[in-house]
């Protein structure tokens, strides 16, 4: 199921890298990323999110195979665009409402339990449900309803069924809205910078995309991997992302593939691009571990594998992002990175 986008791109590059081009056509790199990575990614997500909502309308029982499959497919497609945190994903707090995680205070199960216990009318209406706390919405809330042994048995089945349907529909509405905005103006604005647009220069647009690579890798390092790892004395396997649906490692892999795809597109056919592709491929090969929810972090051998994977992701944050910054000559945050 896992798409090996990155490796096919990397192989496709061949050995014909040009000499380290100082004259990178930034506009072309941004256009390639918008047309070859962002818009298709959101198109896939909008489609699978709509399919999830359609399936849920038909079948809302958590154990249903069709519903679970639709959930996994839509979640996969979200994770593959989840590093693109700018523009349409941030309007109306869409991304926050799609993906409320990490949830260190347990807000999601608390909010869901509250709704279910009170049979709150808001849960019976899509529009109202979309106005609720972001902790009670999106994929991570839906995961509780479909996979958490307590939440999925709580209260009345008919109410939970309505919640499943309305959460799925909220995901579909937001996914379609993001895709529509990208296809209907934001993508063009990114490819044609203008004084009055969201990006005034190709450098700014390319900088946003390099930042997306950096942000995606940072989240994988600091949240997806560091949280379950905890410390050697106190490993925290229960903090693994989406462990109830068995997706923790899968998110790391999907996100590495997606950020790698974007990074390789941005680098283009350069020797830097080859090094970036190799870096991602190496990290991905270290993600071939048989521990889907990082349960092994409490065991010395199992832990070593996850730590090693984290080291490779950290390496990408330094090296691949550094290669892109140097190659494209962009800034990814004069103040943001200063931190004082």
């Amino acid at each position: 199921m896992i798409r090996m986008i990155l490796l096919s791109v990397a192989v496709g590059l061949g050995l014909g890298a040009k000499s380290e081009a100082q004259s990178v056509d930034l506009g072309a790199r941004v256009a390639a990323a918008v047309e070859g990575h962002i818009v298709p990614g959101y198109a896939r997500f909008a489609q699978s999110a709509r399919e999830l909502s359609d399936v849920a309308k038909d079948q809302c029982v958590p154990s249903d195979d069709g519903l679970q499959t639709a959930f996994h497919l839509a979640f996969d497609d979200w994770v593959q665009v989840s590093h693109l945190r700018f523009g349409p994903s941030e309007a109306d707090n869409r991304a926050f409402a799609l993906a409320f995680w990490p949830d260190t205070r347990g807000k999601t199960p608390k909010a869901l339990a509250g709704l279910i216990a009170k049979k709150a009318p808001a849960g019976l209406d899509v529009e109202e449900m979309m106005q609720q706390s972001i902790a009670a919405q999106g994929f991570y809330a839906l995961e509780f309803l479909l996979f958490d042994p307590q939440i999925m048995m709580m209260g009345e089945a008919s109410y939970r069924c309505a919640l499943v349907r309305n959460l799925a529909e909220g995901i579909a509405i937001r996914a379609e809205a993001i895709h529509l905005e990208w296809a209907d103006g934001y993508g063009a604005a990114m490819m044609s910078p203008a004084e009055e647009g969201p990006y005034r220069t190709a450098e700014e647009a390319a900088g946003e995309l390099v930042k997306a690579v950096a942000t995606g890798l940072q989240f994988t390092d600091e949240a997806r991997l560091a949280r379950p790892l905890g410390t050697f004395e106190k490993p925290r396997p229960k903090r693994a992302e989406a462990r109830r649906s068995g997706r923790s490692l899968r998110h790391v892999v999907l996100s590495l593939e997606a950020t790698g795809d974007l990074a390789v597109i941005l680098a283009g056919e350069t020797s830097a691009g080859q090094r970036v592709a190799t870096g991602f491929a190496t990290a991905l090969s270290n993600a071939e571990i048989e521990d889907p929810v990082f349960a092994g972090v409490a065991d010395p051998i199992g832990r070593l594998k996850v730590e090693s994977l984290q080291q490779y992701v950290y390496g990408l944050r330094e090296e691949a992002v550094g290669e892109l910054v140097d190659l494209l000559g962009v800034s990814i945050g004069f103040n943001a990175l200063d931190g004082d």
């Binding site: 941030e90 902790a135 931190g339």
Partner: peptide, 12 residues
């Protein structure tokens, strides 16, 4: 919630 999270824990 959402705009608070958007500050990323940092006021400059």
């Amino acid at each position: 919630e959402a705009p608070h999270l958007a500050m990323k824990g940092y006021a400059g």
